[in-house]
Write a protein that binds this DNA or RNA. Structure first.
Lengths: 221, 221, 221, 221
DNA sequence: GATGAATGAGGATTCATTCAT
DNA sequence: AATGAATGAATCCTCATTCAT
């Protein structure tokens, strides 16, 4: 049980901190959505402030600059995903079941739908704004993914040089799905982010992976 | 009898027009590269003008506004590709050889490396700036691609509902390759746009397609 | 019991608001003089800012746009005059003493010397920038002035159809005096806005009105 | 009968000159209307060129600059009126019939309806753009008008100091009628420039003048 | 005489940021 | 923590003007 506030002076300190963090969170939420949709240059602090019903200068009480806010958004968004991927790889790389990984990642992305778009914004811009730290943490994920593919039963059909490109391709299929959602809705009418469509995409991915990495090693003599 | 009156105004028009069109072309080149890299909001007319070694107001002699310039870039970039895809589909849909199509498209994209990035910029932004005209011309390409997949020999393994998602996935693999080039270089060190890498990617795609749509339907019992 | 929660945000609001309103007032003053002299198109925000010793963007902290600033100038300038005229008419229409009205209006205009020029700028431009609200409030003033003329003792010499034109003529004499001041100085050398000249003009107007509307109805059989 | 063009070389010279002057005239027409409505600053060469269906640089074949065009408009507009007023005064000053003068001026202004607005634009701006030449020619008109008033039979009621103000007032009544036309239409609904309204105004002016300067000096003891 | 292309100067407006309150 | 006021820098765009054609 938490101890209540004792002296008069510090009475509301924790409450305030809590409130402050709460506001910071709301700012991050708003900024994430806007950065994902309009990119860094296309997002203004005015937009962010409006969404949080604050005045612009108040944002500076929580983040030192627009760049810092952007970095925080990326960190908060990418960080957890990287961690989960990391854990997953740690346990599972040996078992090497690509289909299971992909399913897990789809679940992740469903929960963080802005993430793929943020990452793509970055990819388009050359990633120059990614914190070096973030970069350092993204690279190994790619590496481990490649290792996992190599270790998978059906990997025999692919050469060592093809594997990174294969991982890249899978990454594009996964992430592109989210990025193209609004354009696809425009052209085709279907809402890619709706649960049924999402389930279909997951199933399709499973099938694709199973085809490319047949679990039955007999198929690849 | 004097020769028919020729308006003074039109005397030297051709020469001027030629020069003007040339400049317009250079502006489009510069704008295309910049829009592809920095997006619409991240690109300034100052950047464009600097690249063409013109002063900003001169741009307005060729394009009515930044938006109009952007539209012209998209039109000039996407237009030809759509036409080629259209022709290709027209002839080939019957034969339905996805691998060949993909190879052809890779060649196209190699010649227009900015195109995929432009399209993804649009996809991220929701495509709101795509001319309705452009929209109308993109949709059928997707449609015909789906038809072609359905008509291909190895299509048996995929349901009708899966096909559009499958096409979307292939599209992401194709296009994403170009978009991620700079990020990939950062993480992995390899230059995706170098000829050898490019050849490898093409080969990989062929193999993927052959696996997903085995030409010999017997292979998929 | 603690006193009700007072939002942090509103703590020092009054002081700030006071300062802000003061600045807004100074901006209005400067803009009024400039709009009156150079018109809407001929006045730049740079001129306004310079007069108030502010930088241009600061103007936008007080007025949303140049148009909004112009509207505010008109409202602040015309509003009070319309109110005073309204009150005056309300009391005096019955007594119907045109000479008194004119004298009162002259005093008003002397206090708001920019007003006539603003109004004339608008008249020349077709009044398209007058707020509909302002328009609605100007019309009745003209109407009541006409009624007052009709009700005046010496009105007998003018037909009903002539009255509006007569009011218009008086309005032009009144307002034109201020508008032509600088041109008159140029041509004639006299300063129309100097007190003695002003007194003479007032006397002249009284005489003109008395002649046109002789208080002694006997003179008009 | 005029001699036709003789040698081949100069064949079309007069025709060209004629055509050029014609174009210049059309430019002046367009510019006059625009300057009258929007003022000097509010009128752009683009507007003028559009009205004449020319491109902007062509205007420079006829007028050296925007200022020069403005000066030419004023000269062409005010010049004839000044001349006519001059002639009129020359003959009539002795007879001194103000009512006749006013009627004549009204006819003039009806033919040059943009003139009053141009002049008022100038008055508001302080007349700084009036050619010195124009200034020199305007002043004497005012002077002679004053003399005429003094010489008129009913002048007895006005002091020498009042006369210039009286002339100024009459001038405002005359000219303001045209300036306020569009605003009046807005407020009152009547079209001041329609022939019946115009006739009424002329009649009213005659009556006003007759009242202020009774032809029968006996009436003013 | 007419015009396309080019441009310096300047237009209104927005943006990210700071500071006092 | 929140905000009104202020601002330097930069935004897109327009304007009057020139020049080669």
């Amino acid at each position: 049980m938490p101890s209540g506030p004792s002296t008069d002076a510090e009475r509301d300190a924790p409450a305030l901190r809590r409130k402050g963090e709460l506001t910071a969170g709301r700012i991050l939420d708003a900024a994430e959505a806007l950065f994902a949709e309009y990119g860094y240059a296309g997002t203004t602090l005015r937009d962010v402030a409006t969404r949080v019903d604050l005045r612009i200068p108040s944002l500076y009480n929580h983040f030192a600059s627009k760049e810092a806010l952007y970095a925080a958004v990326l960190e908060r968004g990418i960080g957890p995903v990287l961690e989960i991927l990391g854990e997953f790889n740690a346990q599972g790389a040996s078992r090497g079941n690509p289909a299971a990984v992909i399913e897990r990642v789809m679940q992740l992305l469903q929960r963080y739908p802005n993430l793929p778009r943020l990452v793509f914004q970055e990819a388009l811009a050359g990633g120059h704004r990614l914190t070096p730290m973030l970069r350092e943490r993204i690279a190994p994920v790619f590496g481990r993914a490649s290792e996992m593919v190599v270790a998978s039963p059906g990997a025999g059909r692919w050469t060592a040089e093809q594997v990174p490109l294969l991982v890249l391709a899978m990454y594009h299929v996964l992430v592109g799905y989210f990025v193209s959602a609004s354009l696809f809705a425009d052209l085709n009418g279907g809402d890619l982010l709706s649960p049924p469509m999402f389930a279909q995409q997951t199933a399709l991915l499973r099938e694709i992976v199973t085809t490319l990495f047949p679990a039955d090693p007999i198929a690849t003599p």
